[in-house]
């Protein structure tokens, strides 16, 4: 299958790639670039495990073709910690025990990051609504919500 030139900016780094048009952004990130932190749970956009941030918005990367992401700025879970410091959301997930197996965690953290970047001043109800597209099968969500609320509080306090 003919490949197409695609330029992606991922976690601040430029990647000039030749990819098959049938490859999803998720497959490009995982298999072509080698960023395996983003997970594939359903391939149909239902579980949110593959959530990354594309131009500021949380996106399920299994539902985006790699070729259509050309020119976009993408942040994955690998791009969140900076200078050896965890992002407050990452830290909050660790502190509260907001994950068990950890497989849905990158997606939850990226979805939460997009929400908090947009507006950290949200109620539990609003976070529940906004995170409704991410499925966790281990935690029952209680400690995930505790983590997100704790991180949002910290971000509000520090901004």
């Amino acid at each position: 299958m003919a490949k197409h030139p695609v330029s992606l900016k991922v976690n601040g780094d430029e990647h000039d790639l030749l990819i098959e048009p049938r490859k999803t952004l998720l497959a490009v990130l995982r298999d072509t670039i080698g960023l395996t932190g983003t997970k594939e749970g359903c391939s149909t956009g239902d579980c949110g495990a593959c959530t990354v941030i594309v131009d500021g918005k949380a996106v399920t990367s299994c539902m985006v073709l790699g070729v259509t992401a050309s020119g976009k700025e993408i942040t994955t879970i690998e791009g969140l910690a900076s200078d050896g410091e965890l992002h407050p959301i990452q830290q909050a997930f660790i502190d509260t025990g907001g994950y068990q197996c950890g497989f849905c965690t990158p997606g939850f953290i990226m979805a939460s990051k997009a929400l908090v970047d947009e507006n950290p001043d949200r109620t539990e109800e609003e976070f529940r609504f906004a995170l409704g597209g991410n499925i966790c099968r281990c935690t029952g969500y209680t400690k995930i919500l505790e983590a997100v609320l704790q991180a949002a509080e910290e971000i509000r306090t520090n901004s």
């Binding site: 960023l35 994955t76 690998e78 950890g102 497989f103």
Partner: peptide
């Protein structure tokens, strides 16, 4: 597990 570095089967 919060940085994406944990290696799961598919990784």
């Amino acid at each position: 597990k919060v940085t994406g570095r944990a290696i799961y089967g598919a990784d």
